[in-house]
Design a protein around this nucleic acid. Sequence first.
DNA 1: AGTGCGATTGACT
DNA 2: GTCAATCGCACTA
Length: 172
Amino acid sequence: MRDLPHGILSGLIVETEAYVIGDAAGHAYRGMTPRNRSLFLERGHAYVYLAYGISYMLNVSSETPGIGAGVLIRALEPLEGIPIMKLNRGVERVRDLARGPGRLAAALRIDRRLDGLDLCRKGPLWLGRRGDPSRKIGRSIRIGITRDADRLLRFYLCDSPFVSGPRSLNMR
DNA sequence: AGTGCGATTGACT
DNA sequence: GTCAATCGCACTA
C-alpha cells in the first residue's frame, strides 16, 4: 500500500526474490555500508537502492537486527489508484505498470527517501495481507545476477500475467 | 581522488 | 534478439 498526496495506491505482490544469509548475490554479503544498512534492520523494514543509475529497487528486510538479508519485490498486480500509476509511469497498459522491480518503484513513486521505513505500520508505504493462499507459487533462478546464480530463490504466482521475466522461467 | 560496475529498462535492428 | 543510458557507491591507492 502506498499513501501519496494524490491518493492511495495498492497492488498484490506477485513476484519476489530472496537474498538470504550468506548469499554472495546479496548486498549484505560484504557487511554493512551506508547504502545497505537497512537490510540489517528488524524484518519488515524497507531497503531501497538505485540500480544502474536508472531504477529504484524495493526490498523488505527479512531477518533479526544485525543479520542482513532481504526480499526484493519484483512485480505487482495493480489494484487501487491505477490512473495515478499510469501517470507515474507514462504508460497506459495496466500489465506494464509494475511488471519489473524498477517499474514497480516508479509506479509507486518509491525512492531512497523511503529507505529504512517500517513497512509493518501504516505510513507512506506499508504491507498488508491480500493474498489467496490457495494460488500456486512457482520458483526459479533469480534474474539479472551473476554470483550464486543457480539458487532457486525467485518466487511468483504461476497464473498471474503481472509477473516479469522470460516465460521459460515462469512454468514451474 | 579515481575507477568500474550493477538485483534494469526502453529503444531499436 | 542487441545495446546504450546513467549515477551512487564500494573499492583501490
